[in-house]
Write a protein that binds this DNA or RNA. Sequence first.
DNA 1: CCGATATAGTTTCAGCTGAAACGACTTTTC
DNA 2: GAAAAGTCGTTTCAGCTGAAACTATATCGG
Lengths: 153, 153
Amino acid sequence: MADLKLDQFLPYRLSVVSNRVSAAIATAYDRLFGLRIPEWRLIAVIAEGPGITQQALGVATRMDKVTVSRAAQALVERGLVARTPNEGDRRSHLLALTATGRLLYDQVAPKALELEAKMLEQLDADERRALSAMLDRIEAAANEVAPEGVGAD
Amino acid sequence: MADLKLDQFLPYRLSVVSNRVSAAIATAYDRLFGLRIPEWRLIAVIAEGPGITQQALGVATRMDKVTVSRAAQALVERGLVARTPNEGDRRSHLLALTATGRLLYDQVAPKALELEAKMLEQLDADERRALSAMLDRIEAAANEVAPEGVGAD
DNA sequence: CCGATATAGTTTCAGCTGAAACGACTTTTC
DNA sequence: GAAAAGTCGTTTCAGCTGAAACTATATCGG
């Protein structure tokens, strides 16, 4: 009989840790800025390169197009993001932060980095690099095991 | 303005990798054994120590009691798990694998370890230890940042 | 003992997610 | 240049999750 202890099982550990981290971040963003995680992710990517389509946002954030669509609508309604017609392709629009959106981003981003720093506090630079590289390799392997599968949170 | 690139942001990377891994595993278990992740987790813990209550299962798997309740019902209905009255406390029952459940476990556990091995293939023993230790530290830090929050998948 | 409070587990309900169907527009093909 | 096929984005629907309400039992304080 196989020797399998759940809390030594990596997929389980990964899921637990990721959920804790996500929950901590989600709570903070929601309380401080009224943002959900998908919304915050869109803002982060739009801030980097304004004039982006939703489909590109989906690729960048690895979120489903439905999730992107809903988050984008919420942000537009809140006046944080504006849509301009895409001349090249009228099926889509181009998204950019409004002035208000930019202002919010300038508040959220430092807070995000601060939260991240708190969670990484006990890792030194080498460890962080190693962690990041390992995550990349694990993700690649997972993609091989089952090519599909997305999932946001 | 803060320098924040989403794909270097640890909480995001963690979430993406964890979701990929979970999706890969979930697909495999569902296809091979008709098990969802919460069900599989219960089986893994019950196999280790039969005669366990649902509340203890919740602690062990870090899943919500609702999730545990539903997974337990499904397993009982499928005849993989049996409930015996808990003499000491009649609010709860004690769960154990049936013969069928044990048989299934003996198939699932090796498969689980095999899947894990595939994902960890490119990490050597030292790296795995380091990864595990880092996950522990990150989880602890996340718990400090926001004590609550659970979440299964 | 017995009422007050707490805990195990279930049910209900609201929220989030993503597959699938759909509408609008674009590209390809003949 | 129009029908066929593909893509962007929205809507719909079904599934999963967890907070809160609820039932049954247990424990605590007087």
